[in-house]
Each structure stands twice: as C-alpha cells, then as structure tokens.
C-alpha cells in the first residue's frame, strides 16, 4: 500500500485494476491481482500443480430476462470434491445501482474477482463522474476473466454471469462468459456451474419472453430446485436450517434482493406440489 506521495497515485488512468497492478509492481510485490495476468502467478506454472490441493467450488447460478428487467438466482452451497464446504455462501454480488454479477467455479478466485470488479466499476464512476455503459462493464469483466486464464489452466476456472438493467436501451440484459474471457450476450436466460445444465433445461421448458417478475422468480427457483435434485454440488432449499437460494431482481429502480420469506414460501409451494404429485 503506497501512500499518496509515492507517485503511483498520480498515474493517470481510470482503471482500478491497472492501478493495483501498477502499485504492486512498483512495490516489487510478486503476483498481481491474486495471480491474474501474466507470468507472476503465485501458483508455479506447468503441470497440474493444484492436484491434491483442496479447492472450494461454487455451483449453480442463473439469470433470466423478465418484462421489467432480469432475475438472478443462485444456490448457497460451496463444495469441496464430494463434500459440502459451506452451506450458506453467497454467489451473487451487486456491482452498482443497476447490475450484479453471479459467479460459478473456484470460489476463492471467483469471489475475489467479483470484489475487484465492483471496485473497478465504482472507481471508474468516481474518477470520470459518469458510470460506464452496461456493455462497457460487461467487456471489462471479460478482460478480467481472460487475465485469469493462467490460473484457469491450472484448474481454477471462474465463469461469471453478468446481468443488469441498461438505462440506455431501457431493458434488462444478460451476458455469459466462457473460461477464456469470451463474452456472449444472452437474449433469454442462462445458467452456469455444475447444476447449470439441469437448471437450463427447466428454464428452457418454462421460459417465455415478457415474463412478469413474480413468475420469473418462481421459474428461477424451480430451476434451482431441479438442479439441486440432480446435481450433487448444488444445494437445495434447507427447510431445517432455513437456508434458501439468493434471488435478486434487477430493474430500472435498482438491484433488489428478494426477501427470504418470499423465497421460502415459493420453495414450499414447489415442494408441496411435488409431494402431492407423488401421492396420486
């Protein structure tokens, strides 16, 4: 951490990632941005050097477009191999007033990336006096995923899902990524992570354009429910401990978490409807 006078803070750009790189390089600290970017990775390169090192993985996250914006949802489990590492982690991070990022993959670097991304966006907004466009933010995230590539090649893959309300076009937009930083805009819905395939199947069956928010939340929770049913890594609703998936609604008025009682009520309805079906 350099104090102001060391000159690094007079550096002229508006990017926090670049600033952090600059400061760390000038202080001779090895490893940039938790290993992102170039040869200074803290993990020795070459070979599968992470073999045997336990890594936590976040699992299923999803987003779908509704009439008023986007619904984002994620389960709460982190897995370490076949074991539960954490039952109640959060995988969706509000980035600014109108957007949020959901992250699947190696939990440590993923959460770090989300944190860095948030500061990056805020930093730009404060320095420039205007916020980046939604497309600009999504490209920035793509670059961060690409810079993470050296670690991804050693198994620490991070795959974000980014969504927000675009003030300029007046609608919700979803961006999905691959592990090498490719950014693809999604028109309807997407789900990531180990349970992503199962969630996508549910979304595919139930999704239609112009969904109301309420319906969107129901479909998102049903998709997570089914993903947890099929996938070992995805956590289902935990009625005993009271742990339920996180759901966010992204609209013109901002990023808003759906209250737990509403989520739990919908999940109870889903499980009740399934129970009745089994009886008949």
């Amino acid at each position: 951490m350099s104090p102001m006078r060391e000159g690094s803070l007079w550096w002229g750009g508006s990017s926090f990632v670049e600033l952090l790189r600059h400061v760390r390089m000038s202080s001779g600290e090895p490893g940039i941005l938790s290993g992102m970017g170039g040869g200074n990775s803290p993990v020795p390169s070459g070979g599968n050097s992470l073999e045997g090192i336990p890594v936590w993985h976040g699992t299923t996250v999803l987003a779908l477009r509704t009439a008023s914006g986007v619904i984002m949802a994620a389960d709460r489990q982190a897995s370490e191999g076949y074991q539960v590492a954490d039952r109640a982690i959060h995988k969706i991070f509000p980035v600014d007033r109108g957007s949020a990022v959901a992250i699947a993959g190696a939990a440590g670097p993923a959460i770090e990336m989300a944190r860095l991304f948030r500061v990056e966006i805020e930093h730009y907004e404060k320095l420039e006096g205007v916020s980046l466009s939604l497309l600009g933010k999504s490209n920035k995230l793509g670059q961060m995923v690409r810079e993470h590539l050296p670690l991804a090649m050693q198994g620490l893959v991070v795959v974000p899902l980014y969504a927000g309300f675009d003030d300029r076009s007046g609608e919700g937009r979803i961006f999905k990524y691959d592990a090498v930083g490719g950014r693809y805009e999604e028109e309807e819905y997407h789900a990531n992570g180990s349970g992503g395939l199962f969630a996508r199947n549910v979304l595919k069956m139930s999704y239609r354009p112009g969904l109301a928010e309420e319906e969107g939340v129901q479909i998102a929770l049903r998709a997570l429910y089914e993903a947890a049913d099929e996938d070992l890594g995805t956590g289902g609703p935990d009625f005993v401990r009271g742990i339920y998936p996180t759901v966010y609604s992204l609209t013109r008025s901002g990023v808003e978490g759906i209250p737990t009682d509403r989520v739990s009520r919908i999940l109870r309805e889903i499980s009740d409807s399934l129970r009745r079906r089994e009886k008949t």
């Binding site: 102001m4 500061v119 320095l127």
Partner: peptide
C-alpha cells in the same frame, strides 16, 4: 482535480486491500 483523483485512488486501494 488531481488531489481528488489521488484521494479516490488512495481510498479505493485501501478499501480493497
């Protein structure tokens, strides 16, 4: 303006680290 910007950099770095 330069002072303002270095203040933001200082604060964001500290808050992140």
């Amino acid at each position: 303006e330069n002072l303002r910007k270095s203040g933001i950099r200082y604060a964001d770095l500290k808050g992140f680290l």
